[in-house]
Design a protein around this nucleic acid. Structure first.
Length: 491
DNA sequence: CGTCTTTGACCGGCGC
DNA sequence: GCGCCGGTCAAAGACG
């Protein structure tokens, strides 16, 4: 959560911070000890920026802010400096040293947050995977189809994403992740596509490429034809998971860190704006595609829908997005195999996650389950509710929050009532997981920054340079996007 | 000249 | 079978 707030809060708090301290510096002289008390809370909100600030002493935007804010004190010093320039210089030096110290402290904080994030998200995936496995075991009892252990949705990407700094992840996680994460694919790979639930449970993922061909794959269990058929009936609708991002942008596409080549454009029904089709060109044969289309109701909103798994290492700018979409898709898809067992934290956490509470909606639409990250709304948004077609809906348990999360059961055609209930549980579970996981929200913030072409949180000194225009300093509680709020909605 | 975009044609799925 | 629609292909043109 803090991370998410930080980017947008950066310029905001940063300026504020400098204001406070510059004024304090001019007022106080050498007395810095008590200043750390009131400075700290603000810095905690701006950890990323602090890093950038400290790393780049060159006049990046926030540093400029600092300089500008300091200049008055310098101006004061001009008048007073004539009297005691040495004192003023020493004050500034001390201030500078203190800033460096804060920067170091914030770095360590960021490291810790990152570690915790990785750990918790890994644990989340573990829980989801366990549920999937439990469910698959149940299915084994019923039909005896499943024989594999790796989960293409859950394993390679999440493991690749989280196995690096996972000191205290559970034993299971380590085993499962190591078992399922190929060493030859150590980099982040987006997992946005799951083919069939069966595959998610049993299929083996070979580098993220062409899951479809191996879906259901594993003709390895010839004895399971019957149950296979039965499964396919209900699982075909889950062939692909998509992660859709709604963001305000005047640019034709959002900058997500990858290279894309446009291969088609069509007029889609119901939208006067054409839909553009892009394919990832960062590696030969990368199956990842995305569709870009402006929202019919608000043409300033760009809707980007990702589909598929990258089969190549991702640049740093795309990693955050990969993590987020991977997590979203994995939870969505894996959740589809889970039953409600209360393992995942629920809305009890919402009260401490104001943004999660307001940004999370989840829905699925046939034929693909789709998670939509709605980055277009303000910190207290009117809940983004996509008007569903007349189909059975049910609210998800966002207790007391103005969020509707209609999950249209029609998204799963062919389901019996029990299956629909299970799906309802799935959606509920997934939604709760998403909304209650602050680290996931953090990942969303990182993704947003990537989406907007802003640098991802990890400490890259030059990060703040170019895209500061995307930041809205007035929204300290929201991510990087103007008026943004992250909303999960299910189409 | 290589790469990328544009754009009409083509294909497959789906509903009637 | 037909038409609609979404998605993809591939030739032609634009661009650096």
């Amino acid at each position: 959560m803090e991370k998410k707030h930080a980017p947008s809060g950066l310029p905001f708090f940063h300026s504020d911070d400098f204001l406070r301290r510059s004024s304090a510096a001019s007022d106080r002289t050498l007395d810095d000890d008590d200043s750390s008390d009131h400075v700290k809370p603000h810095i905690k909100e701006m950890d990323f920026f602090s890093i950038n600030k400290g790393a780049s002493s060159s006049p990046s935007f926030d540093v400029n802010t600092g300089l500008n804010l300091l200049s008055p004190s310098q101006g004061v010093s001009r008048t007073s400096t004539a009297k005691k320039p040495n004192t003023e210089t020493s004050v500034l030096k001390i201030e500078l040293e203190r800033l460096y110290e804060e920067n170091r402290r914030l770095r360590s904080t960021l490291d810790q947050i990152t570690t915790n994030y990785n750990e918790l998200q890994g644990q989340l995936f573990m829980v989801v995977q366990k549920q999937a496995l439990a469910n698959s075991n149940q299915q084994l009892k019923d039909g005896g189809v499943l024989n594999g252990m790796s989960n293409p949705v859950m394993d390679p990407r999440p493991s690749a994403a989280f196995d690096v700094n996972e000191p205290s992840a559970s034993d299971d996680k380590g085993q499962e992740f190591s078992a399922s994460s190929p060493a030859n694919n150590p980099m982040e790979v987006v997992s946005m596509e799951g083919d069939r639930r069966m595959v998610q449970i049993q299929g083996k993922h070979d580098g993220g490429n062409d899951q479809t061909s191996q879906s259901c794959g594993s003709p390895k269990s010839p004895t399971a034809d019957q149950s296979k058929k039965e499964e396919q009936v209900s699982e075909v609708p889950f062939r692909k998971a998509r992660v859709s991002v709604r963001a305000r942008s005047e640019a034709p596409t959002i900058n997500d860190g990858c290279q894309w080549r446009k291969y088609g454009q069509k007029m889609a029904k119901g939208n006067p704006c054409p839909r553009a089709y892009y394919r990832c060109t960062m590696a030969v044969g990368c199956p990842v595609r995305k569709q870009v289309q402006r929202c019919a109701e608000d043409k300033s909103i760009l809707i980007t829908t990702y589909e598929g798994n990258h089969n190549h290492p991702l640049p740093p700018a795309a990693v955050a997005m990969a993590k987020t979409t991977s997590a979203a898709a994995a939870m969505l898809l894996s959740g589809s195999t889970t039953s409600k067992d209360g393992v995942l934290p629920s809305s009890a956490y919402f009260h401490s996650l104001p943004y999660a509470s307001t940004m999370a909606t989840l829905s699925s639409s046939p034929p693909f389950p789709t998670i939509t990250l709605d980055l277009t709304q303000g910190p207290n948004p009117v809940p983004y509710i996509r008007t569903p077609p007349p189909a059975p809906t049910f609210p998800l348990p966002f207790q007391g929050y103005p969020v509707l999360a209609p999950s249209r059961l029609s998204a799963f055609p062919g389901m019996q009532m029990g299956q629909q209930q299970r799906t309802a549980s799935m959606v509920e579970t997934v939604t709760a997981a998403i909304a209650s996981d602050p680290n996931f929200t953090t990942a969303l913030a990182a993704a947003i920054s990537t989406i907007m072409g802003a640098p991802p949180p990890p400490p890259t000194p030059s990060n703040n340079g170019g895209d500061s225009s995307n930041w809205v300093p007035g929204l300290p509680g929201s991510p990087q996007l103007p008026q943004s709020c992250t909303t999960f909605s299910t189409n």
